[in-house]
Design a protein around this nucleic acid. Structure first.
Lengths: 219, 219
DNA sequence: CTCGATTTGTTCTCGCGTTCACAAACTCCT
DNA sequence: AGGAGTTTGTGAACGCGAGAACAAATCGAG
């Protein structure tokens, strides 16, 4: 029923591999900045902190971009991964919630340098409207739809308290946003076709605490 | 060689389950605050956003804390999970790097309410020493060892730029920290016995971008 | 007390991801 | 040109996690 894209790669890459591609991309960028033109799977795997066999298998899903007996051309591979992920183009992003975390996200230079552009900061607190953060004006949450349509925003970031995160997500979906990065400690339910990724700071600490406790008990 | 803890549970819980326990814990806390005393695996699974069979299997690793035909006692189960994770006690935590992100982390109330206490904020920039953030004084990075030993800190958070993250991690390990939460976009290599978890904001966005691109191509 | 309804704990099967190991392909040196 | 040495790409084996399905256990009604 759904026709495949005309000419592009129709193979689908395993989720675990997709999660590692950005790591490889970063490692390749580092190597490139050091002036290194070529690297083996062993070297790249070391820089990325993974097994070299895994790295090769991951890259094999993209195609055969290496040369046996030689390795990979750093810049060429970097471009191929960037193209596959989709960060050769620029993605407009909306951040909702200008608390401490929203502030930090807006100022995070890593977004800009990796293909993401924060086009709007929204907050329900009207005392903060007009304020400028990281060169972007804070606007009313009600402006969401207008911003999404005019900029063609597909990705939204939720940095509000848990209580409001559900409403924000619903509004985002209603406006046509199809990818959400949720920093609020809440479980969002969204319709099919919308991707949600969750980053929960205290959960990460709790996982560490569990292992820490086990280490302590093992003495 | 390594003797198991005398009386405590020696079974080891699958990593995937450990990662979900904090989610269940949060869901249970919500239910408890709503005054709900008992819940079925179906209800709890719904609140946590997982399959009920998976939930029951996860809980079975902890023991048999439910009652067939009835369900789970909310507060009892909550305590059991908290005890298993280790958040019935208080974990002292050190944060290094008081940029935007470190600032946000220091102010994040979710840590305090979930068993973590920020005992120190460290930064290499001495112009910030003495400044007070979230009720904690910013101190010199050199004070790390003294703080770790006096407070018995086992968990460290790295919120520095990538370039300094490696040095910070090495110093943390040298001081006796055995669990690190790394927000810097870098791959840390640490000795055996030290756990590292990584949170990378731009990687999350890149994963979303990949799926977004595929959605666009599928039209 | 007995029977039906409900819900947990667990067994089983399936699929995904990781790792090993090796054949194919390339370079370089003689 | 040919052979030795590298390094990629991939087939196969293995282990873990997800989900379905069911037996065991408990409650409530009559």
């Amino acid at each position: 029923m759904t026709a495949r894209s005309s000419s592009e790669t129709a193979r689908d890459i395993p989720e675990a591999t997709v999660a590692r591609l950005p790591v490889y991309l970063r490692a390749l960028t580092s190597l490139s900045e050091e002036g290194i033109r070529t690297c083996s799977s062993e070297e790249l795997a070391g820089a990325a902190g993974v097994n070299s066999a895994k790295l090769r298998k991951d890259l094999s899903y993209l195609g055969s971009y290496g040369t046996r007996g030689v390795g990979y051309d750093v810049d060429y591979l970097r471009y191929q991964i960037a193209r596959e992920i989709g960060v050769t183009q620029d993605w407009p992003v909306v951040i909702v919630g200008i608390g401490n975390l929203g502030h930090a996200l807006a100022n995070y230079s890593g977004f800009r340098s990796r293909g993401f552009r924060v086009v709007a900061l929204l907050d329900a607190d009207e005392t903060r409207h007009g304020e400028e953060v990281a060169g972007v004006e804070v606007r009313a949450f009600e402006d969401l739809e207008e911003i999404v349509t005019t900029h063609g925003v597909a990705i939204g970031v939720i940095a509000t308290p848990a209580a409001s995160s559900h409403d924000v997500a619903d509004r985002m979906v209603a406006c046509g946003i199809t990818s959400i990065l949720n920093f609020a400690p809440s479980v969002l339910s969204v319709p099919n076709g919308v991707d949600v990724r969750k980053v929960d700071l205290s959960i990460e600490l709790q996982i560490l605490a569990y292992h820490e406790q086990r280490k302590a008990n093992a003495v």
